[in-house]
């Protein structure tokens, strides 16, 4: 006797919960060969707004955690990914149409990216910060601090990137204490959804990473202009084509309105780099008297 298939309808990941899109919309996710894989939620501007509220609420706790603790929490994501690798390999193989070996290699790389950035959590400040020499009995310390809420676009339709591209965008943002609202790869969002499920059962506080599935061209203009977003990561926005022909440059212009930090699009998958961490921090310099001995 044949068994009924159970077609899945996935949801968004906002504030540690899995809500449906406020708009009620979904879209079909298909495999590389056109076969139906699942339904995904098609996020609206209001979902983006809700995600920013959740991300803002999470900034205090996440940025206030010790760097060591953040490193541990991020390392734990890598551990959990390792435990569920079979699911990720399967989803990548079907949605990207690659061999199991290639999909497996991508999952390995994604795990390595998490581990690599986790290690930086309590070290980047030593590289990006400084004790400045001044002519007086003062300490003068420049310390990098997280910028706040970052809106990001994961690489879109990059071969070998549905999981790796996403992780390469998220990890450097959150490692310094920022929170993120990220729009996943529109056509291959299954890895992003499964990663949300991993995050929900990891130690990452709700709201630190918020995952939207849907059209970046539709959602990003709202996030770029949103006055409560502090920085914009346009890594995957290079080929964005809005309803009125907007390109990523228009997003940059909208972001300038509220003085956001903007990271320009990258072709392919961004390589792990300290610069991706420091792109989302701001330097605070403080003076402090030296004790008189």
């Amino acid at each position: 006797m044949s068994r009924l298939t159970v077609p899945k309808t996935y949801k968004l990941y906002i504030g540690g919960k899995f809500p449906r899109s406020e708009s009620g919309r979904t879209y079909e996710v298909v495999a590389a060969d056109g076969a139906f894989l699942a339904n995904a939620a098609k996020a609206s501007r209001k979902d983006a707004r809700d995600a920013v509220v959740a991300a803002r609420a999470a900034v205090g706790g996440w940025a206030g955690a010790t760097a060591y603790n953040r490193g541990q929490v991020i390392y734990r994501i890598a551990e959990l990914l390792e435990g569920r690798r079979a699911q990720f390999v399967d989803e990548i193989a079907s949605s990207e149409g690659v061999s199991v070996a290639e999909a497996s290699a991508q999952v390995d790389l994604a795990i390595d990216v998490w581990v690599w950035y986790a290690g930086w959590a309590d070290k980047y400040a030593q590289v990006a910060g400084n004790a400045n020499p001044v002519s007086g009995p003062y300490f003068n310390l420049s310390v990098p601090e997280p910028t706040g809420v970052v809106a990001a676009v994961a690489p879109q339709g990059v071969a070998g990137g549905s999981l790796l591209g996403l992780v390469s965008v998220i990890a450097p943002i959150v490692v310094s204490g920022n929170t993120v609202v990220v729009v996943a790869d529109e056509r291959a969002p299954l890895s992003a959804i499964s990663l949300s499920e991993v995050l929900a059962t990891s130690d990452v506080p709700g709201g630190v990473i918020n995952m939207l599935t849907g059209s970046p061209a539709e959602i990003m203009p709202w996030l770029a202009a949103h006055a409560d977003v502090n920085a914009l990561d346009l890594t995957g926005a290079g080929s964005i084509d809005g309803a009125k022909g907007e390109t990523w440059v228009d997003l940059q212009l909208a972001a300038a309105e509220t003085l956001k930090r903007v990271v320009a699009p990258v072709a392919g998958i961004p390589r792990p780099a300290l610069e991706r961490i420091t792109a989302f921090v701001e330097t605070k310099t403080v003076w402090h008297t030296k004790s008189m001995l």
Partner: peptide
Amino acid sequence: RQKMRTGHYSGPDY
């Protein structure tokens, strides 16, 4: 109100 006037979402900084 700010959202309705400017067309983009505002934030608590405003």
